[in-house]
């Protein structure tokens, strides 16, 4: 029965993806992406990934629908003539997709305890964490100490994205203010 549920949900996902690509009305695309997110969240729940499903439902169906609608309001849409179908990109995409699928056959079995990540790093973190870092929480010591450079890189990426968004929004507001001539003093 679970197989049947998954089959129906994944088929609907594939159909909706094709329709989103071929759809010309941007508003319909916004609605269909929300539908896609709800179906994807259902798939993730059936796969027992409840936390990922919750993120998908709140971000995909909730927040990004609002963001896409705001984008529709703030921008104009213009349709370019349909480009001719290109053969080479299709083959590149098929080749990369085939390589990725072939790569999954080399992975260890799902949930296997014999993989290197379970046998080398994790026991060492658990054994030496307090001795080496004097942090009582192992998760904190892994994130902020053993993987400190990784975490710093992530923080830099998020910081840069935030600055970019702020610059875009401030630039827009200033232009708007210079047209009306009175908003800028209040800000």
């Amino acid at each position: 029965m679970i197989v049947l549920v998954m089959t129906v949900l994944l088929t609907l996902l594939a159909v909706i993806t094709i329709v989103i690509i071929r759809q010309r009305s941007l508003f319909a695309v916004v609605i269909l992406t929300g539908v896609y997110s709800f179906l994807m969240a259902s798939v993730l729940i059936v796969l027992d990934a409840v936390d990922v499903a919750m993120t998908e439902a709140s971000v995909g169906a909730g927040v990004s629908t609002v963001l896409l609608l705001a984008t529709l309001y703030l921008t104009q849409s213009r349709e370019y003539p349909q480009p001719r179908p290109a053969i080479i990109p299709l083959f590149v995409a098929l080749g990369i997709g085939g390589a990725l699928i072939a790569g999954t056959f080399g992975l260890p079995p799902f949930g296997s305890a014999d993989t290197p990540i379970h046998n080398r790093t994790a026991p060492r973190y658990l054994a030496k964490s307090i001795e080496e870092t004097t942090v009582p929480n192992v998760v904190t010591s892994v994130l902020a100490d053993y993987r400190g450079y990784d975490t710093m890189g992530e923080t830099v990426v998020i910081f840069t994205a935030g600055i970019g968004v702020l610059l875009l929004l401030l630039g827009r507001r200033r232009r708007y203010s210079s047209e009306t001539g009175e908003e800028i003093q209040g800000e």
């Binding site: 609907l12 159909v15 909706i16 329709v19 009305s25 508003f27 319909a28 609605i31 269909l32 929300g34 539908v35 709800f38 179906l39 169906a61």
Partner: peptide
Amino acid sequence: VVRAIRGPTVFDRVLAGNTIG
């Protein structure tokens, strides 16, 4: 989902999206 895809008007799609939720 069929209604959300085919829906001639925008309101059909909004209602279908809510129903799918």
